[in-house]
């Protein structure tokens, strides 16, 4: 049987479906940022940004950018009515102490035991940068990963053990990819959904990991 990968917006819409009214959520830079475009208009979700915003809104109209009001990727954003500003130590207290319901992060690799690698390739020629990745990985009530299932070279990002330097130990609870939704339960990948036309056996073979 043939199958079609979700595109980036479809994947974002799939993640958004599991985020409900009233949740406090941090969307990591890159792919997870797209999730914000897919909440229904009548649903109120509190978006937190590591640089000190709660109640973050959409990008401003062209010409209305204010570069004192940016997101974690330093792109201009807006603040919703009811939003607030706070300093960096308070912002990370929110993350670290489980005040956020969900953090959605990108990843280079996720291991079956929930280890996450998303901050550094380990290549000495690459300049390392960690930002808030390690704080977000371990702090939220749930850490979700949103990523393409394979690298550009076709290598599975689901692995038995991370070969890249890790960001957090056993921190990932759920993974959304362009092919599947996978939970991590008791150090194992548990397959919850696949795209139409893709069987569990096929996905397991393509990914080189076992699903339970």
């Amino acid at each position: 049987m043939s199958y079609t990968k979700l595109n980036r917006e479809q994947l974002a819409a799939r993640v958004a479906r599991d985020i409900h009214e009233g949740m406090y959520v941090n969307l990591g830079i890159g792919l997870p940022t797209l999730v914000a475009n897919h909440f229904p208009a009548n649903v109120e979700v509190f978006l937190q940004s590591e640089n000190g915003l709660l109640g973050m809104g959409a990008a401003p109209a062209k010409g209305n950018e204010d570069f004192d009001l940016v997101n974690a990727g330093k792109q201009p954003v807006t603040l919703l009515a009811g939003g607030s500003f706070f300093h960096s130590a308070d912002s990370f207290a929110m993350m670290r102490a489980g005040h956020l319901d969900v953090a959605v992060l990108g990843a280079f690799q996720v291991a079956a035991n929930g280890d996450l690698a998303n901050w550094h390739t380990g290549n000495p020629a690459d300049i390392p940068a960690v930002g808030g990745a390690m704080d977000l990985a371990v702090g939220a009530k749930q850490t979700w990963v949103m990523m393409e299932h394979f690298t550009k070279d076709g290598v599975s990002k689901l692995v038995e053990r991370c070969s890249y330097p890790i960001t957090g130990v056993r921190c990932v609870k759920r993974i959304y990819t362009d092919l599947a939704v996978i939970d991590i339960v008791s150090d194992q990948f548990v397959l919850r959904e696949t795209v139409a036309g893709l069987s569990a056996a096929q996905l397991s073979e393509l990914s080189g990991v076992s699903f339970f």
Partner: peptide, 11 residues
């Protein structure tokens, strides 16, 4: 370079 996770830096 001393690289520090952002929340650790703030705290």
């Amino acid at each position: 370079l001393e690289l520090v996770p952002q929340g650790n830096l703030a705290e």
